[in-house]
Design a binder for these strands. Structure first.
Ligand SMILES: Nc1nc2c(ncn2[C@H]2C[C@H](O)[C@@H](COP(=O)(O)OP(=O)(O)OP(=O)(O)O)O2)c(=O)[nH]1
Ligand SMILES: [Mg+2]
Ligand SMILES: [Mg+2]
Length: 580
DNA sequence: GCCGTTTTCGGCCCGACTGTTTTCAGTCG
């Protein structure tokens, strides 16, 4: 079955190949926009086609793209893409991944040097052959030599938030020491809360842009200065991550922050809207003629366009602008709304005390804490952890503790543990730990079965994601979420930066199906409660409000839910545990 | 190729930096 990502890749490739033919650039963009829509759509194109849904109802999809999507779903490929590949002026698109190489230069390199891969280009640079090629010269050859010598990342390279956050923290500390910079913000996809980022985009307020750029250039972690001008600079950090800087004055701070936060489609939509109002929006402000009518704050910018402030997490041009015009944006959940964390790991009695203290110190008023269990786990281990939990919890006034066990799932969707280990738990979390390669139908059946289990309170890692290693597997999330909503089982969003599932998109799907989401740090060490904020940001990207999140509710309320599941449901339905 | 708070045709966001350019194309944010 062809996935949305695969269809998006095909449309993207058509766009790239059309760009070589000097096609109408707006036509190229139409394919890119279509690719983006398909990639970030909550339902699969395959399911839409199966339901005979009207694909042209999707934004940026018209009759042509709809036909291509349909063809891809039905046949697995697009004939017009195959044709474009055959007639393509270059044999490979790999060169386009090199910084500074676009369609024109890639074509010239192939036609005049027979170079079509980054490795061949590197060789040609070392042999000083590139300077003779049309559009190149001695200067650009030196630049390319630098690109290869300093191992500049490929353009499509992205980094998990977990690897970027420590760098961002160090950067904030460093920028804080700069006398020339009075205010700064990390913008771009980082500020929008994406779980992977392509680079770090910095807005810095300064009277002296050159001094600010100098200061950043002399940061110990800067490996290479890619470019610098009067208004901006680009650097490569030691880790290979790119960092873009835009300097601004106080009057234009809000406009620059809006521009650099994006997203690009969001900004383009704002600019179109400005135009329709007889205004112009750029990174310096909102303009009426040559008069600046807004610029100092983002709120001012949005207001000038007839919009209420839009939280960065929503700025993806997915309907937020239309809602902002009506002042009908959803109220999003915040970190302060969270009253507890329902998935705290303690695999031995030693861990319990410190974890409870840390949770309490983070302002949480309850936790569910306990071990991850499997076939080897002894009953005594679980009992000891529960006893320790009860004892330690009494010492912390204002903290309530639920006894938790996390169990794996069988491929059929039963709990993969013996009943005796589960007996004393207040709540049971079922975690998808394996079976990642099941077909979509099998996986959907498995998870629907799991959420219906009378003793299961939360389904953890519902898409098996491992950031940078394993993409979320294909599953009919709408169906799983609907079953979860009916059964009163929550789906989990783990803020472990290595996991980050549910994704923002799946959160939205789950919300629409009426399911509750449990946002957890999935902490196994005391310091890890801090990452709850990452989970909240992702939940906000999924448009979740306080009422969508399970652990916004109070402990007493939840205790009832858990107990109900334990008594009533087990009384009515057989327990499926231990049938692996 | 897509689309409509003037539009079903004629637009489509706007600007910075670099190198080779002899007036601006290419690439990128
Ligand atoms: N108006 C406008 N703004 C752009 C354009 N390209 C980029 N930007 C703005 C919006 C982006 O969010 C911001 C930073 O650019 P990036 O390429 O770093 O993108 P972003 O951070 O959104 O995603 P990333 O994770 O870095 O790939 O600059 C453009 O073509 N037009
Ligand atoms: Mg970025
Ligand atoms: Mg950037």
């Amino acid at each position: 079955m062809v996935t949305n990502a695969e269809i998006a890749d095909m449309l993207e490739e058509i766009a790239t190949l059309l760009a070589f033919d000097d096609a109408n650039p707006f036509r190229v963009r139409a394919y890119r926009n279509g690719a983006r829509t398909v990639r970030r759509y909550g339902k699969t194109m395959a399911s839409l086609v199966a339901d005979e849904a009207d694909l042209t109802a999707l934004p940026t999809i018209g009759t042509d793209l709809a036909a291509l999507i349909q063809e891809a779903v039905n046949t697995g490929h697009m004939r017009s893409l195959d044709a474009l590949r055959i007639s393509a002026p270059i044999p490979s698109l790999d060169l386009l991944e090199v910084e500074g190489i676009g369609p024109k230069k890639a074509r010239a390199l192939w036609q005049e040097l027979g170079v079509s891969t980054p490795e061949q280009l590197h060789r040609a640079v070392l042999d000083h052959k590139v300077r003779t090629v049309t559009g190149f010269g001695p200067g650009s050859e030196v630049r390319l030599a630098e690109v290869f010598a300093k191992q500049t990342p490929l353009k499509s390279r992205r980094y998990p938030l977990g690897t970027v956050t420590p760098i961002a923290d160090a950067l904030r500390t460093y920028l804080g020491t700069c006398p020339d910079i009075s205010r700064f913000e990390i913008a771009g996809s980082f500020r929008r809360g994406r779980d992977t980022v392509g680079d770090l985009d910095i807005v810095a307020e300064t009277h002296t842009p050159a001094a600010a750029i100098d200061h950043l250039a002399s940061w110990s972690r800067v490996k290479r200065l890619v470019l610098r001008g009067e208004a901006k600079a680009t650097f490569i950090l030691d880790e290979g991550i790119q960092m873009d800087l835009r300097a601004t004055d106080t009057e234009g701070w809000g406009a620059m922050l809006q521009y650099f936060t994006g997203s690009k489609p969001h900004s383009i939509a704002l600019r179109v809207r400005a135009k329709a109002k007889g205004l112009k929006l750029n990174e310096y402000g909102v303009w009426k003629g040559n008069q600046r009518v807004a610029g100092a704050t983002e709120t001012e910018i949005y207001d000038a366009l007839g919009l209420v402030f839009i939280p960065p997490e929503l700025r993806e041009n997915r309907g937020e602008i239309e809602l902002a015009a009506e002042d009908k944006l959803p109220i999003l959940v915040t970190r302060q709304d969270l009253k507890g964390d329902l998935h705290v790991i303690a695999n031995s009695v030693r861990d319990v005390g410190a974890m409870l203290k840390a949770a309490h110190a983070c302002g949480l008023s309850y936790v569910a804490i306990g071990p991850r269990i499997d076939a080897k786990t002894k009953r005594k281990t679980v009992e000891d952890i529960f006893r320790e939990t009860d004892a330690r919890c009494k010492d912390i006034p204002g903290l309530r503790c639920f006894r938790l066990v996390e169990v794996g799932l069988t491929k059929q969707g039963d709990l993969d543990a013996s009943d005796t280990l589960l007996e004393d738990a207040d709540l049971i979390i079922g975690a998808v730990r394996d079976g990642f390669d099941l077909t979509k139908a099998e996986q959907t059946k498995r998870l629907v079965q799991a959420v219906k289990h009378p003793r299961l309170s939360i389904l953890s890692h519902p898409t098996g994601r491992s950031v940078g290693e394993r993409e979320p597997f294909d599953v009919d999330m709408a169906k799983v979420a609907k079953a979860a909503a009916q059964a009163g089982t929550a789906l989990e969003l783990s803020a472990d930066p290595a996991r980050m599932d549910l994704t923002d998109l799946h959160c939205h799907t789950a919300q629409e199906a009426g399911a509750q989401i449990s946002v957890t740090a999935e902490a196994i060490r005391p310091a890890e409660f801090e990452r709850l904020t990452l989970g909240i940001v992702q939940a906000r990207r999924g448009w979740l409000g306080p009422s969508d999140v399970l652990n916004v509710r109070g402990a007493a309320d939840l205790a009832k839910t858990f107990r109900t599941q334990k008594t009533n449901k087990t009384a009515k339905e057989p327990v499926h545990a231990g049938s692996a």
